[in-house]
């Protein structure tokens, strides 16, 4: 029997991972040089969460998907142009700062408030999804804090798979040390799931989905509430690029035999 789920995906926007980043000092504290003009993408692990959520919604008729995203309005709009082509969702945008140097507790407070304000949200059917770590701060704490604020204490991190069962329970695979997954079964929603890579490829662009999404995305962006993030006493002593540059020996003429012999000797050494 299918289960009508309500899935809220929390996903931030981050500089495209292929960009070169340089720290900069801004009036609000440390930031990234030219942050506002760097091409941005939906945070990769949170994007996995979005695709997995869309798949669950597809398989369970009556389900609904919201995408909650905090970022500067203009940037959100830009990223949503692409994301909206992929899967159907209702956008819940919050207009505020992005970047890795903001405090996760403040971000979580804002996101929890945005989720709690979604009309007609039914907690007994609620799954909160997101990436287990962002590509900016990479702290892995935002979803947990949202869960605590909303009183949800069934939480999973580093999730690669969810299997919904007939009775509404679900099995979750979470990444643990040593290249293994921990297997758990949760009896029912609500739950928080921080996703790792999952099992789905990025969906192809679908202009029909895009058109349908954009009808609600644009008005939602217009209405987006503006927020400031509290630093919660977080301060930075230094922010810098790693300096170590190695002297690289480039060997162009060695035979495979000679290279192999050198590598065997190298890996055999204690240090």
């Amino acid at each position: 029997m299918p289960h009508a789920l309500q899935i809220v995906v929390c996903a931030g926007i981050v500089p495209d991972p292929l960009q070169t980043l340089e720290p900069a000092t801004t009036p609000a504290g440390p930031g990234i040089k030219n942050e506002m003009v760097l091409p941005a993408v939906l945070d990769p692990w949170a994007a996995s969460a979005l695709y997995e959520a869309a798949e669950l919604v597809k398989k369970n008729p009556g389900s609904k998907l919201w995408l909650v995203s905090l970022g500067p309005k203009a940037k959100l709009q830009q990223v949503m142009m692409t994301v909206a082509q992929k899967v159907a969702f209702e956008l819940v945008p919050v207009d505020g700062p992005i970047g890795g140097f903001t405090d996760a507790h403040a971000t979580a407070a804002v996101l929890a408030e945005a989720i709690a304000a979604i009309p007609a949200l039914d907690k007994t059917r609620l799954l909160i999804f997101g990436g287990w770590e962002s590509a900016t701060r990479g702290a892995g704490v935002t979803l947990q804090l949202i869960g605590e604020r909303l009183g949800i204490t069934e939480q999973f991190q580093g999730v690669d798979q969810i299997d919904l069962r007939e009775d509404g329970s679900f099995e979750v695979l979470e990444r643990v040390e040593g290249g293994k997954h921990q297997v758990s079964v949760c009896t029912a929603a609500p739950a928080v799931l921080g996703w790792a890579t999952g099992n789905l490829a990025e969906p192809r662009n679908n202009p029909q989905i895009g058109m349908a999404n954009m009808r609600t995305v644009m008005p939602a962006l217009m209405r987006a509430k503006q927020v400031k993030l509290d630093a919660n006493t977080l301060s930075y002593v230094s922010v810098s690029l790693p300096k170590q540059q190695r002297e690289t020996r480039v060997e162009k003429e060695m035979t495979p035999e000679a290279i192999a012999a050198e590598i065997v000797e190298w890996i055999g050494k204690d240090n």
Partner: peptide
């Protein structure tokens, strides 16, 4: 590290930028 008040080092932007931070709370 740090002296009277502890300071902690960590990476940001997936191991591309390093920072030292502190909190008074």
């Amino acid at each position: 590290g740090g002296d009277a008040a502890p300071q902690a080092s960590r990476w940001f932007y997936r191991q591309r930028i390093e920072a030292i931070l502190a909190r008074s709370a």
